[in-house]
């Protein structure tokens, strides 16, 4: 971590920095702590007194989580809900979208990185344009198009428009540019076809790049809200973000599933993050330091 020469580290600044960052971390973690606490308290408590940091041990229980997983309310009633279905859909969508996006984007990036061809720069400028424009700005034309193509209310409608994903293409291209072209030439000498080279020689080399992007694309897919909300119609296809959002009706209180469900929906990413922090960071920062 030593940036300037590490000859002597003075105690004073070290302590000030440490205290400052501990305080900052507490502030950043407070919202997590507050919602986690609320998930163990009865929903009526939240509605009556608001979200707070009081630790009332006698009020806290696993009732909300029990209801989340079994459909049995604290009063012992069986009141089914769709949370587990949404969770399953989210897993399915995230896996499908991540796999397809990575493969398609790597395929495209290989074309940009390893060949010189007429129109390459023009097409690549299009990637850069799309890279920068936020989705929200294009959501109306994209929605009309998806609607015209009959893609609404299906996972394909969510996945297809983003399969050749600009920032993933950009990242893979940067990565591939650092791979010596001799590998490709050697493959050709051995008589492999252009596509054989991609699948047999290049994909295995791209493994580290795949790890970094899989995490980033997967996280975005898991948390994605706006596009799935526009595309999905029937409740049976809802993913977590959409399902949790439907719990926010002005009528009736669904805070028991909402709060516990929101907490539980973050857990897969927290686990993933704690094991793969390095790849997370690599994937996130790739776009900012471009060559």
């Amino acid at each position: 971590m030593a940036v300037p020469s590490a000859k002597r580290v003075r105690r004073g600044p070290r302590l000030v920095l440490l205290v400052f960052f501990v305080c900052l971390s507490v502030v950043v973690l407070l919202p997590f702590f507050a919602i986690l606490l609320a998930s163990f308290k009865p929903a009526e408590e939240l509605i009556r007194y608001g979200l707070n940091l009081r630790l009332d041990w006698h009020l806290m229980s696993f009732d909300n989580y029990k209801y989340l997983f079994t459909g049995i309310t604290p009063e012992g009633q069986h009141l089914p809900h769709d949370y587990l279905l949404w969770f399953r859909n989210s897993v399915l969508l995230t896996v499908m979208q991540t796999a397809l996006t990575l493969l398609t984007s790597a395929w495209v990036a290989y074309g940009f990185a390893m060949y010189r061809f007429k129109g390459r720069n023009v097409i690549f400028s299009c990637v850069l344009v799309i890279l920068m424009i936020p989705f929200e700005i294009l959501m109306l034309p994209m929605y009309s198009q998806a609607s015209a193509m009959g893609l609404l209310d299906s996972f394909w409608g969510i996945i297809l428009p983003f399969m050749a994903h600009a920032s993933t293409i950009f990242f893979f291209r940067q990565y591939l540019l650092s791979i010596p072209k001799e590998i490709v030439d050697a493959g050709r000498v051995d008589g492999a076809s252009e596509y054989g080279i991609f699948f047999r020689l290049i994909l295995p080399i791209m493994k580290p790049a795949f790890s970094a992007m899989a995490i980033l694309v997967g996280m975005n897919s898991w948390n994605n809200f706006l596009w799935p909300m526009l595309v999905l119609r029937s409740g049976k296809k809802y993913v977590l973000s959409i399902g949790l959002n439907t719990l926010l009706t002005p009528y009736g209180n669904n805070y028991d599933i909402l709060i516990a469900g929101a907490c539980f929906s973050v857990i897969p990413l927290l686990i993933l993050f704690s094991f793969t922090q390095k790849y997370f960071i690599e994937g996130m920062t790739m776009g900012s330091v471009k060559g």
Binding site: S25, V28, I35, N223, F225, I259, F273
Partner: peptide
């Protein structure tokens, strides 16, 4: 790592909190 954690929440979860 701690300062990075909030981005792991979706807009839905963060908005609710």
């Amino acid at each position: 790592g701690i300062l990075f954690l909030p981005i792991l929440t979706s807009v839905v979860v963060a908005g609710t909190i």
